[in-house]
Computed example of a mutant assay.
Amino acid sequence: MEPGAADFKLFEVLEPARQTIPFVYNSPHSGRHYPQEFLESSRLDGVSIRRSEDHFVDELFADAPLRGAPLLVAHFPRAYVDVNREPYELDPRMFTGPLPSYANSNSVRVAGGLGTIPRIVAENMEIYQRRLTVEEGLSRIEQIYKPYHACLRRLVARTHAEFGTAILIDCHSMPGNIRVAGSGLRPDFIIGDRYGTSASAELTQAALEILADFGFTAVRNKPYAGGFITEHYGRPARALHALQIEINRAIYVDEETLERRRDFALLAEILSSFIQRMALYAADLGGDGALAAE
């Protein structure tokens, strides 16, 4: 592991006193502990390098354990390693030596600079002053990416074994200027289910309706349908459901200063109620077989 990356807990599971609902909440992009050596290798200042964070999303969903569900929280930053990618989506232009043959260097995400080891943060700002060694990149994958996913798999498997179904809610935020193509609509929330492949239609609809009941504009899949985590863990035919939830950052954070807005606590309260209502809805759906394996 690179020096400095072990100076803080890389991730942690916030457990309920007893898990009472078949949900796992995950906040993979809200990490804000930056290794000093990483900062020194970057051409960006301390604010700019944070532009890709899902700012404070872990705090917004902090009541998940109180509602009976575990919450997995990343403390490492997305700019350092992105666990919402395949394990080896790597850009050869970032490294001094040849990548291993199993690396996927041709994905759309790599082309956009947002691979497993990102080249840029938001607004196409280049992160690094120099190329990395291949060993640096692979070390982050071995020491952070793989343990993170091993932990997430255990949580999902445990939940599935106990309840007969597991529902993963992958929690993210999006820039305030995001619009739905063709409409100009600026959504408050986007629920992603990989176009119906990662979760039951009933569960997706429940999330949209609950958010609408709270007075938010919520849309499905556009422009964010879900990333690697949603796609990889969602297997509705096996009673494994995964939804991605994107929150418009402008609702709760000043995107220039990255400070919490005055009504941050109110949004957290609403999302606590969202967790509770999703659990009740899932219990009703489970009762008539809608969440059972086909």
Rank of each mutant, 00 (worst) to 15 (best):
G4N: 11
G4C: 06
A6I: 09
A6F: 04
K9M: 09
L10Q: 06
L14N: 13
E15K: 13
P16L: 02
R18A: 14
I21M: 05
P22M: 10
Y25M: 06
Y25R: 04
H29N: 10
G31N: 07
Y34A: 02
Y34Q: 06
Q36E: 12
E40N: 15
E40Q: 13
E40K: 12
S41M: 12
S41C: 05
S41P: 02
S41H: 07
S42M: 04
G46Q: 13
G46F: 13
I49S: 04
I49W: 00
I49G: 00
R50L: 03
E53S: 05
H55I: 01
H55R: 07
F56H: 03
F56D: 01
E59G: 02
E59W: 09
E59S: 07
E59C: 06
L60P: 01
L60N: 04
F61E: 03
F61L: 09
D63W: 10
A64L: 06
A64I: 04
R67Y: 09
A69H: 11
V73P: 00
H75R: 11
F76N: 00
R78V: 05
Y88N: 08
Y88A: 15
D91W: 04
P92Q: 10
R93E: 11
R93G: 01
F95V: 03
P98S: 15
P100R: 01
Y102F: 14
A103N: 03
N104K: 09
S105P: 11
G115N: 06
P118S: 15
E123M: 11
N124D: 13
N124Y: 14
Q129V: 10
T133W: 02
T133A: 10
E136H: 07
L138N: 03
S139Y: 01
I144N: 00
Y145S: 00
K146H: 15
R154F: 01
V156Q: 04
T159V: 15
A161R: 08
E162F: 06
F163C: 10
F163H: 09
T165K: 11
I167G: 04
C171N: 15
G176R: 11
G176N: 06
G176I: 11
N177L: 14
I178G: 00
S183L: 10
G184C: 09
D193R: 01
R194K: 13
S198E: 06
A199R: 00
S200I: 03
E202I: 06
L208E: 12
I210D: 02
L211K: 07
L211S: 09
F214E: 15
G215W: 09
A218S: 12
V219K: 09
P223E: 04
Y224T: 14
F228H: 14
I229D: 01
G234L: 02
A237M: 11
A239F: 13
A239E: 10
L243N: 05
Q244L: 06
I245A: 04
R249K: 12
I251C: 02
I251W: 15
E255C: 07
E255F: 08
L258Y: 15
L258S: 07
E259V: 00
E259T: 04
R261F: 05
F264E: 06
A265K: 14
A265W: 05
L266R: 12
L267C: 07
E269V: 02
E269T: 11
L280M: 08
A282D: 06
D284H: 12
A293G: 05
